[in-house]
Amino acid sequence: MEVRTIKVFTTVDNINLHTQVVDMSMTYGQQFGPTYLDGADVTKIKPHNSHEGKTFYVLPNDDTLRVEAFEYYHTTDPSFLGRYMSALNHTKKWKYPQVNGLTSIKWADNNCYLATALLTLQQIELKFNPPALQDAYYRARAGEAANFCALILAYCNKTVGELGDVRETMSYLFQHANLDSCKRVLNVVCKTCGQQQTTLKGVEAVMYMGTLSYEQFKKGVQIPCTCGKQATKYLVQQESPFVMMSAPPAQYELKHGTFTCASEYTGNYQCGHYKHITSKETLYCIDGALLTKSSEYKGPITDVFYKENSYTTTIK
């Protein structure tokens, strides 16, 4: 009895394709271990004539594949690729409408935090270190965002349907971005203890939790000093293409032309909904596939993004 075979390709990165001759009487799992086709788990399936010449994702289970996976995804987590594939199996079914010149995501599976993050990423200057993220990001900007969303979920250790947080998501993504040249110098002034300067680099240099107003941050924000008295913390120097200011959701007025974009969060910790506000020729609110415009805006804002380049204080 002759062994019926077909020729397929296996890959971990969709760049390096490895030619395989597979036995049609055995499952993919018996031949390769966990195997995925377009995100779908085909591990328990036997090869079919229609699979001839198709590319299958496999887990990096030998040295060659491990090197290829690390170079593309910059992670050695053995569960990463499987999590990416199972997320992709959902995100490829989502709709990605162009809204006001940006790629958004039609609401499904509690994905409003991903839509808000995706919209924000198209408006701030950011370059990702893992080629996987950078490639998928370019495709997302062009309207094909399924891979990018699935990668975000995998890097953030999230599953489809789980509630997510924009600030946490951005923080994970910033860790995989090139923020080497970003720098922030802060000064804390206390009447009792004097003053202390701190220099922050990388992710810490672009994120701040405690106030939404970048102007206020430049002037000074009140913080408790270690001595128990009130101290003032203010920005001395900022070198970065953008800054992200966050605070627990509270009524906040966004003035046209003073910011790049913002995240609105309605609801409580267990259950809520994100919308995205962007400042173009007027203010726009993007909620999944829905767009509304207004000249002014007041609502429960939790993150505001500002364009920056270089700032030095005039406070002496």
Results as ranks from 00 to 15, higher is better:
E2I: 09
V3Q: 13
V3T: 12
V3G: 12
R4S: 13
K7I: 11
V8K: 04
V8S: 06
V8M: 15
V8Q: 04
F9D: 06
F9T: 10
F9C: 11
F9W: 11
T10C: 12
T11R: 04
D13V: 06
N14L: 08
I15M: 11
I15Y: 11
H18P: 07
H18Q: 07
H18R: 08
T19Y: 11
Q20P: 07
V21W: 12
V22I: 11
M24Q: 12
M26C: 14
T27S: 10
T27M: 12
T27W: 11
G29I: 05
G29N: 06
G29Q: 08
Q30V: 12
Q31H: 11
Q31E: 08
F32G: 06
F32L: 12
G33F: 04
P34M: 08
P34E: 13
Y36T: 06
L37D: 13
G39D: 10
A40Q: 14
A40H: 12
D41W: 05
V42N: 07
T43H: 14
K44E: 15
K46P: 11
H48Q: 12
H48R: 13
H48C: 13
N49C: 12
E52K: 14
T55S: 12
Y57F: 13
Y57R: 06
V58S: 07
V58M: 09
L59Q: 13
L59K: 08
L59N: 13
P60C: 07
N61T: 13
N61K: 12
N61Y: 14
D62H: 10
D62V: 07
D63G: 07
T64E: 15
L65Y: 09
L65I: 06
L65A: 10
E68P: 06
A69Q: 11
A69D: 09
F70Q: 09
F70Y: 10
F70L: 15
E71F: 05
Y72N: 08
Y72V: 06
Y73K: 05
Y73A: 03
Y73L: 05
H74W: 05
T75N: 12
T75G: 05
T75H: 06
T76D: 13
T76G: 14
D77I: 03
D77M: 05
D77T: 03
D77P: 03
P78R: 14
P78S: 09
S79G: 13
S79W: 08
L81D: 06
L81Y: 08
L81Q: 07
R83L: 11
M85S: 04
M85G: 05
L88M: 06
N89D: 11
H90S: 12
H90K: 13
T91Y: 03
T91L: 05
K92R: 13
K93Y: 11
K95W: 08
K95E: 15
Y96R: 04
Y96K: 02
Y96N: 06
P97W: 11
P97M: 14
P97K: 12
Q98F: 08
Q98K: 11
Q98A: 09
G101M: 03
S104R: 04
I105F: 02
I105Y: 04
W107F: 05
W107L: 05
A108L: 05
D109P: 02
N110H: 05
N110I: 02
N111K: 04
N111G: 00
N111A: 06
C112H: 03
C112A: 04
L114Y: 05
L114M: 08
A115L: 05
A115F: 05
A115M: 06
T116E: 05
A117M: 03
A117G: 05
A117W: 04
L118K: 03
L119F: 01
T120M: 10
L121D: 05
L121E: 03
Q122Y: 04
Q122G: 03
Q123L: 06
E125K: 08
F128T: 03
F128Y: 09
P130N: 05
P130M: 03
P131N: 02
A132M: 02
L133T: 04
L133F: 04
D135Q: 10
A136K: 02
Y137A: 08
R141I: 11
R141C: 13
R141G: 07
R141Q: 09
G143W: 03
E144F: 08
A145V: 01
N147R: 09
F148D: 04
F148E: 00
F148M: 12
F148S: 03
C149Q: 06
A150L: 03
A150S: 04
L151M: 07
L151H: 01
L151I: 02
I152G: 02
Y155A: 02
Y155M: 00
C156F: 02
N157G: 12
N157P: 02
K158P: 00
K158T: 02
T159E: 15
V160P: 07
G161D: 01
E162N: 02
E162M: 07
G164S: 05
G164H: 03
E168W: 05
T169A: 06
T169K: 01
M170P: 02
M170H: 05
Y172M: 10
L173V: 09
F174A: 04
Q175S: 09
H176Y: 15
A177L: 05
A177W: 02
N178S: 09
L179Q: 03
L179I: 04
S181K: 14
C182M: 04
K183H: 10
K183D: 02
V185R: 06
V185A: 02
V185P: 02
V185Q: 05
V185L: 06
L186R: 04
L186F: 13
N187P: 06
V188E: 06
V189G: 02
V189W: 08
C193H: 02
G194P: 07
Q195S: 15
Q195P: 11
Q196S: 13
K201C: 10
G202Q: 01
G202M: 01
E204N: 10
E204K: 14
M207R: 07
M207W: 07
Y208H: 10
M209F: 15
M209V: 15
G210T: 01
G210N: 03
T211E: 11
T211M: 09
L212E: 02
E215T: 07
Q216K: 14
G220W: 01
G220A: 06
G220F: 02
V221T: 08
V221L: 14
Q222I: 10
Q222R: 10
Q222D: 07
Q222Y: 08
I223P: 01
I223K: 02
I223N: 03
I223H: 13
P224H: 13
P224C: 10
P224M: 15
C225E: 01
T226Q: 14
T226C: 11
K229L: 13
K229N: 15
A231M: 01
A231F: 02
K233R: 14
Y234E: 01
L235N: 01
L235V: 10
V236H: 04
V236C: 08
Q238P: 00
Q238F: 02
E239R: 10
E239V: 13
E239C: 10
P241D: 09
P241H: 08
P241Y: 00
V243R: 01
M245G: 00
M245Y: 00
S246L: 04
A247T: 05
A247P: 00
P249C: 04
P249M: 03
A250D: 11
A250C: 10
Q251H: 15
Q251T: 12
Y252S: 07
E253V: 09
L254Y: 01
H256F: 10
H256C: 15
G257S: 07
F259I: 01
T260C: 11
A262N: 00
A262G: 00
S263Y: 00
S263K: 02
Y265K: 00
T266D: 11
T266K: 06
T266H: 08
G267I: 08
G267K: 08
N268W: 08
Y269D: 15
Q270M: 08
Q270F: 04
C271Y: 11
H273A: 00
Y274P: 00
Y274A: 07
K275Q: 08
H276G: 02
I277E: 00
T278N: 07
T278Q: 09
K280W: 08
L283Y: 02
L283G: 01
C285P: 00
I286A: 03
D287I: 05
L290C: 15
L290V: 15
K293N: 11
S295Y: 10
S295M: 13
E296T: 13
Y297W: 13
K298F: 13
G299T: 00
G299S: 02
T302S: 09
D303T: 03
V304E: 00
Y306R: 00
Y306F: 03
K307H: 12
K307D: 09
N309F: 09
N309E: 09
N309Y: 10
N309H: 15
T312Q: 14
T313D: 15
T313W: 12
T314M: 14
I315E: 15
K316V: 15
K316R: 15
